[in-house]
Amino acid sequence: MIVADRKSLEEILSMIKDYKNIMVLGCKGCVTVCNVGGEKEVSILASALRIARQKEGREINIDTKVIERQCDNEYVAQLKETVGNYEAVVSMACGVGPQFLSEAYREQKFYPAVNTTFFGGAVTHGIWEERCAGCGTCIIHDFDGLCPVARCAKSLLHGPCGGSSKGKCEISKETICIWDSIVSKKMEQGRLNDLLKVRAVKDWRTARDGGPRRSIREELTQ
């Protein structure tokens, strides 16, 4: 899923400082699963913002709503009747949400309440980790399903580098060296030879480097 973290209240408060009537809009997709922009977090944010503004003596009306997915025009369209009732909308979806909203409602202003961080999952309750960088040409079949592009701090395709120590990456003792994992697994399985070749340089055109990407599925287009 797409993982995000809530922005600081200070930052959100400064985005909405001029408004007295806003909507905080959540999303039932990834951000609900990663506990950052679902029903509950929307209510918490709304409450915290109200408290802050009351404290300043500048009360604000905040309505809350959570839609199925902000990255889907079908659901975004459900806001048609209400979106105009506010001075601004704060979205708690990932970075995709505010954009679909902004494109659908030209006259409204949208602000993100979260920092969208990565594609990953929860490794244990309350802790999420990155797993994929969306490079557009997946190569993890060569690495037993482990991704060095997203998970090696240097995106090395031939690792581990000289900084790998006791299974941890040189950047921090909290970060695993994915190359240590890849190599160890290959060695355990007696398939080290898979790694002993010089790989062609990666074609980054399919990654963000090639410009904004688009996926077309002819059979589905209308």
């Binding site: 600081s8 209240l9 915290a48 404290k55």
Partner: peptide, 8 residues
């Protein structure tokens, strides 16, 4: 933490 952030 929230209260701290908003100065309460």
């Amino acid at each position: 933490k929230i209260l701290q952030e908003i100065g309460i």
